[in-house]
Design a protein around this nucleic acid. Structure first.
Lengths: 177, 177
DNA sequence: GTCTATAATTTGATAGAC
DNA sequence: GTCTATCAAATTATAGAC
């Protein structure tokens, strides 16, 4: 892994625990074994690092989801795949969704970080809309509503499971019926 | 309003925008017209202020909800009342739920702030459980599930509406069917 | 209750050598 | 790419006067 990727990885862990303000160039530098001045070589400003972090997180997340068309053609329910990815983020990493935390503090983010955070949700909604249309055969408008409800429920369930410190809550929140 | 209440009010606004790290004693002091050292007279440490903030927010929130039994006896759906309180927080204040934001960054909070944040959700779940049992006449276990789903959906819908900067999303997320 | 003064630490960022 | 050195600003907190 390149130093740049190691810096982003260290930053992701910290932001997913305490938000945008919960990492400093000095801490990241120590984590990867360089000095804070060197971090500025890879990322001119903190906002640059934050924006790149959100951008890569979005890419990785959507990449892990795959194409809803392909999932359906394999006989899978794409919504189950979506829920499982959130579950994994919470249970395995024991952390919030990066963009969930950033989204909540959107008013205080640098412009470019806020823009990337917004993109995460726009692309997630687009993915879910397609998934719902394919799987449940609902119309456009209904698929849109279901997409909004799905991502809202999942982000909220993550947040509350963290707050109460009980992952069972997540599973109960996302259980059918 | 006492200076102490004014300080808490100023802190609430800041935390609901950017989280626990988004207020400093100096800023609060300036907002209410005193010096930062004087803030320590009212709140020994930042954690003390944060804990008191979350505690009062919880009290005010549950106080505004009222008793679900009374609401039902007046012919109201207590869940509608609950949704409306969240809607008001988002639309009128243009801010996240205080404890939603704090809950998301729970891992990095001082112990006493984390504890008060947890209480907010425990008491909200208890309120919703009673409300669902009264209104929909479901059994205990089902009411518990509905409570978890309700608060998850609302907190998540707030977060995403903030992130995408479109309050219509909130209304779509919480719309029935 | 509020002030001045100050301490100790952390932060984001830059200049310039290697 | 990474370093040393440094800066200006901000932060939480305390001591002690009024």
């Amino acid at each position: 892994m390149t130093k740049k990727q190691a810096l982003l990885k260290a930053a992701e862990s910290k932001v997913r625990q305490g938000g945008y303000s919960n990492f400093s160039f000095r801490e990241l530098a120590t984590d990867v074994g360089i000095k804070s001045a060197s971090v500025h070589y890879h990322f001119p400003t903190k906002a640059d690092l934050g924006a790149e972090l959100a951008r890569q997180y979005t890419e990785t997340f959507l990449g892990a989801l795959g194409d809803p068309e392909v999932l359906v053609s394999e006989g899978k329910d794409p919504i189950d795949t979506y829920v499982d990815l959130f579950r994994q983020a919470l249970i395995k990493d024991e952390k919030m969704c990066l963009c969930g935390l950033l989204g909540a503090e959107t008013d205080c983010l640098p412009d470019k970080v806020r823009a990337e955070t917004k993109q995460f949700f726009e692309r997630n909604l687009a993915w879910l809309e397609r998934a719902h249309k394919l799987h449940k055969k609902v119309d456009q408008k209904e698929a849109q509503l279901l997409a909004i409800k799905t991502v809202s429920l999942l982000e909220g369930a993550m947040m509350i499971s963290k707050a109460i410190d009980n992952n069972d809550l997540f599973n109960q929140a996302v259980a059918l019926a």
